[in-house]
Design a binder for these strands. Structure first.
Lengths: 148, 148
DNA sequence: CCGAATCGCTTGCAAACGCAAGCATATTGC
DNA sequence: GCAATATGCTTGCGTTTGCAAGCGATTCGG
C-alpha cells in the first residue's frame, strides 16, 4: 500500500520529467517560449477576464512570487501580456492576457497536443485515456487552477 | 482522442509540479538534499555495482551532462558518492554510491514514501493504485532507468 | 597506421529560480 | 483613529541549470 504510493509517485515524476524535456524543445524552437511560460499563458486564458494577480499565478504554477514577476516582465515587453492595476486594492497588479498572447497560447496548444498525442501513441485506447484522466483528476481535485 | 491526450498530459505535469514542490521542502529540511539529488542517489542504488557513468545518469534523469557533473561534485565532497575511472575507457568517470550514500538514500526513501502516501491519502484504494501504476508504467516502459 | 569523426567530461556564460529583505498598501485590534 | 499586523509586489543575492565550446580519449575509414 505504502509501497504502491511510492512507486506511483516515482513513476509520475519520472514521466513528467520526460514529457517536460520533450515539450521544452518544441516550445522553444516553434514558439520561442519555455514550458512555464506556456503554462502561465494557459492559466490566464482560462481565468475570468483573462487575468490573474501575481500571487494567484504563483500558487497555481507552484513557483515563487518573484518568479512570476520576472517571468511576466519579458512577456509584457513582447506584448503577450499587459499589466493592470486594481481600482479597489492598489497593491494588486494583474497580469492580463493580450490579443496576441491569446493567439500565441492557441498556437502553443496545438504543439502541446501534438506532443501529448505522441506520448500516448498507439498503446492507449480511449477507455485507457478516460480512466487515466479520471485518476489524475483525483490528484489535483483540491488544488487550485486546473487547466483542463 | 487528441484532446484527451492533451488533458492527461496537462494534468500529469500539474500533478508532478505539485508533488515536487511538497517533496522539495521535506528533502531539504530533513535530509539536506534536493529532489534531483535524491533521484540521482536512487538511480545509483538500483544500478549494477551501484555506479553509473555521468552521461547515463544524465539520460535517465532527463538533464544535461553538465548538470550531472555539477551535482556530483558537492555530493562527492560530503562523501555520498565517489569517482571511479574505467580501466578500459579512460574517458569514463563513474559516479559510485558510497556506504553513507546508500544509507542516505534509504532514509530519504522513508520521507519520500511518507509524502507519497499523503498524496494518495484516503480517496485511493489498492485497486485504484494498481491500476494507476500499470497505466503510468506504459508511459515510461521504453525509457531507460525506471526506478520502481 | 593516421587523419577524421565521435564520445565522455568539464567549464564559461547567461537564463531561471527561491529566499530573504524591503516597500507600499490594506486590514485588524484596541 | 492609530499602531500593529498582514498582504502583494519587487529586488539583491546565491544556487541550479542548459547550451556551446573545449579538452582528452576512443573509434572509424581508407
Amino acid at each position: 500500500m505504502e509501497h504502491l504510493c511510492l512507486k506511483n509517485t516515482i513513476r509520475l515524476l519520472q514521466s513528467a520529467d520526460q514529457i517536460k524535456a520533450r515539450l521544452s524543445g518544441d516550445f522553444a524552437s516553434v514558439h520561442g517560449l519555455s514550458v512555464n511560460e506556456v503554462f502561465l499563458l494557459m492559466h490566464l486564458e482560462q481565468a475570468p477576464l483573462h487575468r490573474l494577480s501575481r500571487v494567484e499565478l504563483a500558487k497555481r504554477m507552484h513557483v515563487s512570487a518573484s518568479t512570476v514577476t520576472r517571468m511576466a516582465a519579458p512577456m509584457e515587453k513582447i506584448g503577450l501580456v499587459s499589466r493592470q492595476a486594481d481600482t479597489r486594492d492598489a497593491r494588486l497588479a494583474f497580469v492580463v492576457l493580450s490579443e496576441s498572447g491569446l493567439e500565441k497560447v492557441k498556437e502553443a496548444r496545438v504543439t502541446f497536443a501534438k506532443q501529448a498525442t505522441y506520448v500516448f501513441r498507439d498503446r492507449w485506447n480511449d477507455e485507457d485515456l478516460e480512466l487515466f484522466s479520471a485518476l489524475l483528476h483525483r490528484l489535483i481535485a483540491d488544488a487550485p487552477g486546473d487547466l483542463t
